[in-house]
Design a protein around this nucleic acid. Structure first.
Ligand SMILES: [Zn+2]
Ligand SMILES: [Zn+2]
Ligand SMILES: [Zn+2]
Ligand SMILES: [Zn+2]
Lengths: 165, 165
DNA sequence: AGTGTTATGTTATATTGTATCATTAGTCGT
DNA sequence: ACGACTAATGATACAATATAACATAACACT
């Protein structure tokens, strides 16, 4: 497939992470990452399968997509948005990975998301409360069901999928 | 079905809420609420259907359970835990409803949950950041994927379903 | 009773996610 | 290079979760 410069950077980062962690960035995994990156919008595993098969020569089935998404999530290159059952690439890792506990605002109506850059002391204080409650955060993210600006104003919901900054 | 005193209190609260909001607490809805209350553990819609049909005379199908869960969630008597696709009664409403934005810690392993009583100023600060980002929280809850104390210690995960305080 | 509205029953189907086993592709020691 | 081991993928089936669509029943209001 045609890869943008940004996608190539993403892959480079991915390769570094895999090298360091003793994992293999296979061609299929790389392709999944690239397709997901180019889409740049939350997609379901089945949607991703369709896009993959449009863009990549050798066809893939959703079972494999799920496996690869699991893998990519395990090395923190992909976020699974459980509130909408969709997946996105992690944008925290493109430059240098500064992963904490990301807070995603997920629009209930159009499924656009915003990655809330939350103050460090806030996260720290929160995680301390989690710890005091006897729980251990497992590096996942938080999601808040909400309404984006557009969907608040218009009764008409927006077309799904945008990612706001 | 046999209802505990606590369940009857719950129903009384439910009836009040429905009266105030112009909704109807039908017999079926009341039964769903009672069953869910007695279970007192996160259950899926299908699990709830099974329990309902064991406890209540006239049988119900999952479609209706989903509809009633939607209703009960809309009047904030039930929480839908999206990270594990399960449902629980809201324990915030039993005395007097002091609903803000509940933070649920959800154990990835055994699916027990803890409702984290989070400091008010913390919630306020957080919601302000959400607002500044142009999003409107729609009264849902936050969920953090985590590991409970038991599941941290033992490699063996615990049996699913407990609710910790 | 007649009429509009809300809730439920019923059936079918869509969507999301796993289990299982066979096959292929790397890895490593000889 | 060869065999043996492990990791990754292919392929099929199936489970679990959720919604669509339409018919019927219960309720509310005149
Ligand atoms: Zn990230
Ligand atoms: Zn929106
Ligand atoms: Zn609650
Ligand atoms: Zn646990």
């Amino acid at each position: 497939m045609m890869s943008t410069v940004a996608a190539k950077d993403m892959v480079k980062v991915a390769r570094n992470i895999c090298d360091k962690t003793g994992n293999r960035l296979t061609e299929t995994r790389q392709h999944v990452l690239e397709v997901l990156f180019e889409l740049d919008t939350p997609v379901s595993a089945y949607e991703l399968t369709e896009h993959y098969n449009l863009l990549i020569d050798s066809p893939i089935k959703t079972m494999s997509i799920y496996r690869i998404l699991d893998f990519l999530e395990s090395i923190r290159l992909v976020h699974r948005l459980r509130s909408i059952n969709k997946y996105i690439v992690c944008h925290h890792s493109v430059g240098a990975c500064h992963h904490k506990t990301p807070f995603f605002l997920v629009c209930k109506s159009c499924h656009c998301i915003k990655d809330l850059e939350i103050a460090t002391e806030f996260v720290t204080a929160f995680l301390q409360q989690v710890e005091e409650a006897g729980f251990l955060s497992v590096g996942s993210q938080m999601e808040l069901s909400s309404l984006c600006k557009n969907c608040q104003q218009s009764l008409e919901p927006n077309s799904p999928g945008d990612i706001h900054d």
